[in-house]
Amino acid sequence: MDVFMKGLSKAKEGVVAAAEKTKQGVAEAAGKTKEGVLYVGSKTKEGVVHGVATVAEKTKEQVTNVGGAVVTGVTAVAQKTVEGAGSIAAATGFVKKDQLGKNEEGAPQEGILEDMPVDPDNEAYEMPSEEGYQDYEPEA
């Protein structure tokens, strides 16, 4: 019985440690998101679009440190934060509304985080759909 109880105690310690790591990862992701939003706020009209992409990228980098179902929630929060940063930029006159959601080359930025393969159960990952990809044929 002692062996059984000791095993359960060790398992509990492992769960607590994993929860603490997840909590730490979420806190880091939130900190990076805040950094990115402050970065966007300090940019001029020309830099705002690039700044919004930076927020998304920093958040995406930190999301990889967070495991399990938390990833889905962090990704949703990050996307809403990026959308909010863009709205703030438009409201303050840093950028025109028609410039939001495009990178410096004018290509749409939507789907940055949505296409990231995420499995809350950590069982399997699927690649994003290939609808947006084109076949590449090298020139002879």
Rank of each mutant, 00 (worst) to 15 (best):
N65F: 07
Q99V: 13
E46S: 14
T33C: 02
H50K: 13
D115L: 12
A76M: 08
N122P: 03
V3G: 05
L8N: 00
Y136T: 06
N103C: 10
S42A: 13
V82S: 07
A91G: 10
E57N: 14
G25D: 02
S9F: 14
K58G: 01
V3H: 05
V74W: 11
G36P: 01
E61G: 10
P117I: 04
Q99M: 08
A78H: 05
L100V: 15
E104M: 15
E105V: 15
K97P: 09
Y133L: 15
V49I: 04
E46V: 11
K60S: 03
N103D: 11
V26H: 00
Q134F: 08
S87M: 15
N65Y: 10
A56T: 12
L8T: 00
F4S: 00
G93W: 13
K21M: 08
V70Q: 00
E123H: 14
A124I: 02
G101N: 02
M127Q: 08
V63Y: 09
D2N: 14
P128F: 09
G106R: 08
V77R: 05
E83Q: 10
K32T: 03
Y133H: 10
Q62I: 11
S42V: 11
A30G: 03
G51M: 12
F4C: 02
E104P: 15
E139W: 10
V118P: 06
Q79P: 01
D121W: 11
K60C: 10
K10G: 01
E104S: 15
D135Q: 12
G36E: 03
E137G: 08
A56S: 15
N65V: 10
K60P: 01
M5P: 00
V40L: 14
V82H: 05
E57Y: 08
G47P: 01
A85R: 03
E46C: 09
Q109E: 06
D115S: 07
G86W: 05
K12Q: 06
E83N: 09
A78Y: 03
A19I: 06
E137N: 07
G25W: 02
A19E: 00
I88T: 04
E20F: 12
V63K: 02
Y39L: 09
A11D: 00
F4I: 06
S129Q: 05
Y125D: 13
A11C: 15
P138W: 10
P108N: 14
V48A: 02
E83G: 08
H50V: 03
Y39N: 05
Q24L: 12
L38C: 02
I88M: 08
T44P: 01
T64K: 04
A17D: 10
K23A: 06
Q134W: 07
E126A: 15
T92W: 14
G36Q: 09
T54E: 04
S129P: 11
N103R: 11
I88S: 01
G25E: 14
T72G: 14
E123M: 05
V16E: 07
V16M: 15
G73W: 09
E13C: 03
S87Y: 09
G84Y: 11
G106S: 13
K6Y: 02
V55T: 04
T33E: 00
G25H: 13
G47H: 10
D2E: 11
K21T: 04
D119A: 10
A19N: 02
T64H: 15
V40P: 00
P128L: 14
E28N: 02
A29R: 03
Y136Q: 07
K23R: 12
T81M: 11
D119W: 14
P117T: 04
K58C: 03
D121P: 09
T92L: 10
A19T: 09
G106V: 09
E46M: 15
E123K: 15
N65A: 13
V48S: 01
E61H: 11
G14Y: 14
K21C: 02
S42M: 12
G67A: 05
G25K: 12
V15R: 00
P117A: 04
E20K: 05
L8M: 06
E126G: 11
A91D: 03
G41L: 01
V16R: 06
T59K: 00
E46K: 13
A76P: 02
V77T: 02
Q79M: 08
G7N: 11
D115A: 12
A91W: 08
A90G: 09
V63L: 08
A85F: 06
T54H: 14
D98S: 06
A90K: 14
V77D: 01
A85P: 05
G41D: 00
S42P: 01
E131L: 05
K6Q: 04
Q134P: 15
P120W: 08
N122I: 03
N122L: 07
E139T: 02
E13W: 12
T75V: 08
L113M: 09
G73S: 10
V16Q: 13
G25M: 15
Q109S: 14
F94Q: 14
Y133V: 08
A91R: 11
E114D: 15
V15W: 05
D135W: 13
V15G: 02
Q24N: 13
P128C: 08
T72W: 03
P108F: 08
I112F: 11
V70D: 01
D115I: 09
I112E: 08
L38V: 05
E110C: 06
K96W: 06
T22I: 15
A107Q: 07
V52C: 03
F4W: 07
M1H: 00
T33G: 04
P120L: 06
T92S: 08
V49D: 02
G36T: 13
A90H: 14
Y125G: 06
A89G: 07
E46P: 02
F94G: 01
K97L: 15
K6G: 06
L100T: 08
K23Q: 04
E104T: 12
V70H: 00
K12M: 03
K96N: 07
G7S: 10
E57S: 05
E105H: 02
D2K: 10
G14K: 15
V71I: 14
Y125I: 13
S9G: 13
A29C: 13
K43E: 01
G47M: 07
V48P: 00
D135M: 09
V16T: 11
K58I: 08
V48F: 02
T75N: 04
Q99E: 03
Q134E: 10
E46Q: 14
A89H: 06
V118A: 12
G41T: 13
N103G: 06
Q62M: 04
D135V: 07
S9T: 05
Q109I: 06
A27L: 12
G41C: 12
I112S: 08
K97E: 02
E131K: 06
K45Y: 02
Y133D: 15
G86N: 15
E20W: 12
S87Q: 11
E13G: 14
K96A: 11
A107F: 11
K32P: 00
A89S: 07
A53T: 05
Q62G: 05
N103S: 11
T59C: 12
V15Y: 13
K97F: 09
K21L: 13
D135Y: 12
T33N: 00
L100G: 10
E28I: 09
K102I: 09
N103P: 08
T92P: 04
I88N: 02
V63H: 01
E13F: 07
N65E: 07
G68H: 10
E130C: 08
E13Y: 15
Q79T: 11
